[in-house]
Amino acid sequence: MATFIALTHTEEHDWSQPEYEDGLREYVDFEEAHADVLRGGHALYPTASAKLVRAPDGDGEQPVVSDGPFAETKEVLTGFFLIECADMDEAVEIAAKIPAVQYGTVEVRQLHSSLGV
Rank of each mutant, 00 (worst) to 15 (best):
T3P: 10
T3S: 13
T3F: 09
F4G: 03
I5N: 04
A6F: 07
L7R: 04
L7P: 06
L7M: 15
L7G: 05
T8Y: 07
H9C: 14
T10W: 02
E12G: 12
P18D: 12
Y20C: 01
E21T: 08
D22L: 03
G23N: 11
R25I: 06
R25W: 03
F30D: 02
F30E: 04
E31P: 00
E31F: 10
A35R: 13
A35T: 07
V37K: 11
G40A: 08
G41S: 09
H42W: 08
H42F: 09
A43T: 04
L44D: 10
L44I: 11
Y45Q: 12
P46F: 02
T47L: 07
T47A: 12
A48F: 02
K51I: 02
L52T: 15
L52Y: 00
V53Y: 00
V53K: 01
V53N: 03
A55I: 05
P56F: 07
P56A: 14
D57Q: 07
G58D: 06
E61L: 14
E61R: 10
Q62L: 12
Q62T: 08
Q62P: 02
V64W: 03
V65N: 01
V65E: 05
F70I: 11
F70P: 03
K74H: 09
L77H: 01
F81Y: 15
L82M: 13
L82D: 13
E84Q: 14
E84Y: 03
A86N: 14
D87E: 13
E90Y: 04
E90N: 01
E90I: 02
V92N: 12
A95P: 15
A95F: 12
K97G: 04
K97Y: 03
K97I: 02
T105M: 10
T105F: 07
V106Q: 07
V106E: 08
V106P: 11
V108N: 10
R109I: 05
Q110L: 11
L111D: 06
H112D: 14
L115H: 06
L115W: 07
